[in-house]
């Protein structure tokens, strides 16, 4: 049994008589300790799937199970101790008037966890931010620095599952490498499970065991890492993504 099991998930956003079906009958399973990648067209519903898992999207069909149980609504504290999400948009997801210290210590306070100081310093260290940044506000950081704060915050509660939405697209090559290395190290050491979205097939290839390709709200094709690296895709759309990533292949 997979740790994350999504069956026939559909999500439709409705407002004032308009409706948008963002996800249409998508199924996927992520085994414990596996890293699963979502790739595909911009607007195809990748972020919506992650948000649906967290109870942040209007699910209109299908089921989401974690560890065999249907996720509760509302998700509640036990869920957030177990599943954490890093949002695509680091600007919107950080409170503009909270210092990094407050952003990072708040989850601890909510869950009644002590040793705040030590844990905040450790978190800054883990994502490669200097400790002198501790009392800065988000607007005093560059784009990549904010993204690292968002990752640090998701790690504060030591979750078992991380939902990562474009975790490194705002990061330069060196910080991306450090962040991916950190995520992989944590996955091994703490037995984490990842469901991650990225547009960079090289990042997906480096991080993921299985990959789901999406287009226009639907799952187009599921691939193993081997299928990806050896160009064994069956659909035209997956192949077009691969061909347009020619600059990211290992030189023969």
């Amino acid at each position: 049994m997979a740790l994350i099991e999504i069956e026939n998930l559909s999500v439709t956003y409705r407002s004032k008589g308009r409706s948008v079906t963002a996800v249409e009958s998508v199924s996927l399973g992520v085994e414990a300790r596996q890293s699963f990648g979502l790739v595909g067209e911009s607007g195809s519903g990748k972020s919506t799937i992650l948000r649906a898992i967290c109870g942040l999207a209007p699910v209109t069909g299908g089921t989401i199970r974690i560890g065999g149980d249907l996720v509760p609504t509302p998700r509640g504290r036990a869920f957030s101790a177990r599943v954490q999400m890093v949002f695509q948009d680091p600007y919107a997801s950080l409170h503009p008037r909270h210092t990094l210290d407050r952003t990072l210590s708040e989850p601890l306070a909510i869950h009644g966890i002590g040793q705040t100081d030590a844990r905040v310093m450790q978190a800054l260290d883990d994502v490669g931010l200097p400790q002198s940044f501790r009392f800065r506000y988000p607007h005093q950081l560059s784009g990549g620095q904010r993204q690292r704060v968002a990752i640090a915050r998701a790690l504060m509660l030591r979750p078992e599952i991380l939902l990562l939405d474009e975790p490194t697209s705002a990061l330069d090559a060196s910080v991306q490498a450090e962040t991916l290395n950190l995520l992989n190290r944590l996955r091994t050491e703490r037995g984490l499970t990842f469901l991650m979205v990225s547009h960079d097939l090289a990042v997906i290839d480096h991080m993921c065991d299985r990959i789901l390709v999406m287009q226009n709200g639907r799952a187009v094709e599921e691939l193993s890492r081997q299928d990806l690296a050896s160009a064994k895709m069956k659909t035209d759309y997956a192949r077009s993504l691969f061909s347009a990533s020619a600059d990211r292949m290992l030189e023969p």
């Binding site: 490498a177 290395n181 090289a202 480096h206 050896s230 990211r248 292949m249 290992l250």
Partner: peptide, 15 residues
């Protein structure tokens, strides 16, 4: 520091 499709799964080199 960049990963490559089909590259090794070792930690990526840092700067």
């Amino acid at each position: 520091c960049l990963p490559r499709i089909g590259g090794p799964r070792q930690p990526l080199p840092g700067l």
